[in-house]
Amino acid sequence: MTGKAEALQELLQSARTERINALAELEVLEIKIREVRERAAALTIDEETLRDLHRRWFPGPDDDDHHVENGNPVVAVGGDDWAAMTRSAAVERAIMMMNASRPTVSPGDIEDFLAKAGRSDTRDEIGGVTAYLNRTGKIHSQGRGKWVYGPDPERVRHLISLGEEAIESLPRASWEATT
């Protein structure tokens, strides 16, 4: 072979090697793109699930049933008959409404709130209900006598990792109709 032919052969081999390397790099990038798309789809599902859970546990400020003025919940908005509610539904709703303006709620806070709503639940009765609501995942504790509406965030993260069936096992509010 002549010098020109050898040089052309080397250029051809170099171009072929670069093309093969580029195709391999493209294949790796396509795999990464697929992985990122799958991750984005999973995160979209997680976001929608969390948005639904948030709406379920913490209704928006325009919802008449959960109205707060000057940092204090307005009791019996929208014709709610607090006296007709079961004790657990009244305590659960009171905790949810008070959590709109304060991070945690004590049994004394609940007792005062329910008294303003026209109920006469004792602190012992409220304590029994908070234990039940905590056990069923409708509220969780952030220390002794410090209640927060909704299940423990760690439990929610664990259930999300298990999938949609586990998420559906999360409790609904006592007053919320189930279908």
Score class of each variant (00 low, 15 high):
19 R>G: 01
97 M>Y: 06
32 K>N: 08
93 R>H: 15
85 M>Q: 10
140 H>G: 07
50 L>I: 14
114 L>N: 08
136 T>V: 15
74 V>Q: 12
67 H>Y: 07
118 G>S: 11
116 K>V: 04
42 A>C: 05
99 N>T: 14
76 A>T: 03
46 D>A: 14
89 A>V: 11
132 Y>R: 10
109 D>T: 14
53 L>A: 06
105 V>R: 01
35 E>G: 09
66 H>R: 01
75 V>G: 04
72 N>S: 07
24 A>K: 04
102 R>L: 14
74 V>I: 12
59 P>V: 12
66 H>L: 08
119 R>C: 15
79 G>A: 06
116 K>E: 14
64 D>T: 05
127 G>M: 14
28 V>D: 12
36 V>S: 11
140 H>V: 12
86 T>A: 08
21 N>C: 03
93 R>T: 09
129 V>D: 00
97 M>W: 09
51 R>F: 13
92 E>D: 06
64 D>E: 11
32 K>H: 04
63 D>Y: 04
34 R>T: 06
138 K>W: 00
70 N>S: 07
128 G>L: 13
104 T>K: 06
51 R>G: 08
23 L>Y: 05
131 A>P: 03
56 R>L: 15
61 P>A: 09
113 F>H: 12
49 T>D: 13
110 I>A: 10
87 R>D: 06
101 S>P: 13
97 M>G: 00
30 E>P: 04
76 A>C: 13
47 E>S: 14
98 M>P: 04
92 E>Q: 09
103 P>C: 07
119 R>G: 10
62 D>C: 01
135 R>L: 10
64 D>H: 01
43 L>Q: 13
29 L>R: 15
59 P>L: 11
60 G>V: 11
94 A>R: 08
94 A>H: 06
41 A>C: 05
138 K>S: 02
105 V>A: 00
137 G>C: 08
113 F>I: 13
60 G>Q: 09
124 D>V: 00
130 T>V: 15
134 N>L: 05
134 N>I: 02
65 D>W: 14
117 A>G: 15
33 I>Y: 01
108 G>W: 08
132 Y>N: 09
48 E>G: 01
45 I>H: 00
106 S>N: 04
142 Q>P: 02
51 R>H: 13
49 T>L: 15
103 P>N: 14
120 S>L: 13
36 V>K: 15
91 V>T: 05
113 F>V: 09
46 D>R: 15
106 S>M: 07
93 R>Q: 13
102 R>I: 15
94 A>G: 15
81 D>N: 14
43 L>W: 10
33 I>T: 08
26 L>S: 07
133 L>S: 06
126 I>D: 00
70 N>I: 00
111 E>W: 00
22 A>P: 02
71 G>Y: 08
26 L>H: 03
94 A>M: 08
76 A>N: 15
108 G>T: 08
136 T>K: 07
62 D>N: 04
140 H>C: 04
117 A>C: 12
93 R>M: 11
122 T>K: 13
114 L>F: 06
36 V>M: 12
92 E>T: 04
74 V>A: 13
55 R>P: 02
33 I>M: 02
128 G>M: 12
89 A>P: 03
134 N>V: 05
34 R>V: 02
61 P>I: 08
40 A>W: 04
105 V>N: 00
23 L>G: 07
82 W>H: 10
71 G>S: 03
